[in-house]
């Protein structure tokens, strides 16, 4: 009893000290409790019994996305059976043309190449795998398998891998741009004003029966916008086509800037793009000159009158 008493006192003192120091964090508290319940814990020889292994798992290993978006998998890693924490190298093996990365799930999205795994921890580490083709048009729709591998850094004996499948479904898409690259054109009221636009199939499916139409906000009616050709029957994947646009403002359009929207849409209505073009309607040259002429005639007339009639 004499020997037990001081031990009890010591344990109580340490506990109190811990409590008052405000340091009752989970792991330490756990460690203390371990210390206290040392007699009831299993013997150390039992712990080393299971085989060392690294587990890689993913809840949704097969993803299906339309082309044009990227793929994201959350992969869980767990190291079991070891005594000490170990570092594991993470590698991805993707088909050609894919851009891939392993990143943190939260916080800074740092790219991860090596991860530390502690066998004593009961929860799993989670990383996020990203994959998307460099160029969408270069990757046909289909199934692509990306393999993620975790290899123990120092010896390389402990490893595992998982197959992540990306199913890319076809996605139609198109893009409009002006031939010149500028988004403003000049036009003369009452006249044909030709310019051209380029339509590109940037999707992963052929586009069929594309029609064009135009709409203009804040402008009086009477504007005629025609396209040549009026309709494109088929635009294969990745191809371009030049379309001539004729913008004809009505005869009595006040000169100045107007916004004209040009839109293109295939019959399926699955893809769509629009282009806002600033149309600067110019004063017809003749009326501009007539206007200037009137002003000059009036000013000259006034000056002559002043010279002849003024007494100065």
């Amino acid at each position: 009893m004499n020997r037990l008493k001081p031990t009890c006192y010591l344990a109580c003192a340490i506990l109190l000290l811990m409590i008052f120091g405000g340091l009752i964090t989970q792991p330490i508290a756990l460690a203390v409790s371990e210390g206290i319940t040392e007699s009831s814990s299993p013997p150390p020889g039992q712990e080393s019994t299971p085989a060392e292994e690294v587990e890689i798992s993913c809840k949704y290993p097969v993803l299906r996305n339309p082309s044009g978006t990227y793929f994201v998998w959350d992969v869980e890693l767990r190291y079991k059976g070891g005594e000490q924490p170990h570092y594991f190298d993470l590698r991805l093996n993707a088909p050609a043309g894919f851009d891939t990365a392993i990143r943190q799930v939260t916080g800074e999205e740092r790219e991860i190449a090596r991860i530390a795994l502690d066998p004593k921890r009961e929860y799993t580490e989670m990383v996020r795998v990203f994959a998307s083709p460099f160029v969408w048009s270069a990757v046909e729709p289909g199934e692509y398998v990306i393999t993620m591998e975790a290899v123990e850094s120092s010896l390389g004996e402990l490893k595992n891998s998982i197959e992540l499948t990306a199913i890319i479904t076809p996605k139609p898409d198109l893009a409009l741009e002006t031939t010149s690259g500028r988004l403003n054109v000049e036009a003369i009221a009452g006249k044909d004003n030709f310019s051209s636009i380029i339509i590109t199939n940037i999707g992963s499916a052929e586009l069929e029966k594309i029609t064009f139409f135009s709409e203009t906000k804040d402008r009086p009616p009477g504007w005629i916008v025609t396209f040549s050709p009026e309709k494109i029957d088929s635009l294969p994947l990745g191809s371009k086509r030049e379309v001539e646009v004729n913008i004809k403002p009505p005869q009595k359009t006040i000169s100045g800037d107007y916004m004209v929207t040009i839109e293109a849409e295939p019959e399926s209505k699955l893809a769509w793009d629009m282009l806002e073009i600033r149309v600067t309607v110019l004063t017809p040259t003749i009326w501009g000159w007539v206007g200037v002429g009137i002003v000059i005639v009036v000013i000259v007339g006034l000056v002559v009158m002043f010279m002849r009639l003024g007494r100065r």
Binding site: T253, I254, S255, V281, L282, G288, V290, G291, M305
Partner: peptide, 22 residues
């Protein structure tokens, strides 16, 4: 009349140039 006619003519001329609608 000189004042009125000349300013109306000048505004008409400038307007013709700026809006371009005869």
């Amino acid at each position: 009349s000189l004042l009125v006619m000349s300013i109306v003519a000048i505004v008409a001329g400038l307007g013709l140039r700026s809006i371009g609608v005869p």
